[in-house]
Amino acid sequence: MANRVRVKALAAPGHVRAPFYLRGRTGVIERELGVFGNPEQLAYGLPAEEKPLYRVRFTMAEIWGAAAERQDDTLDAEIYGHWLEKV
């Protein structure tokens, strides 16, 4: 997985854990967290594939643009690998 990643700009109609405000935003992998059962399957009582999970750090400037309170404040979120694409 590349160090710089973008959250896929998808609008999924079910239970997902990639927050809308980060979709299409680019960040840096802060650390790899290992693999976890995919909540998009677990939430429906289905057998779950193991998905890698990453902690991704974004600048507030990247997320909110000029509206950010402080450009270089940061936001960390955990994003599953299948929601990330290399930049």
Partner: peptide
């Protein structure tokens, strides 16, 4: 979106040179 404003509502005023890092508990 506005962590510094939220912190002020809790009575926390940070020094100007402090970096805020927000952690959104989105997964495990």
């Amino acid at each position: 979106f506005e962590p510094r404003k939220v912190l002020r509502e809790f009575g926390v005023e940070l020094p100007a040179d402090t970096t805020v890092r927000v952690h959104d508990s989105t997964a495990d």
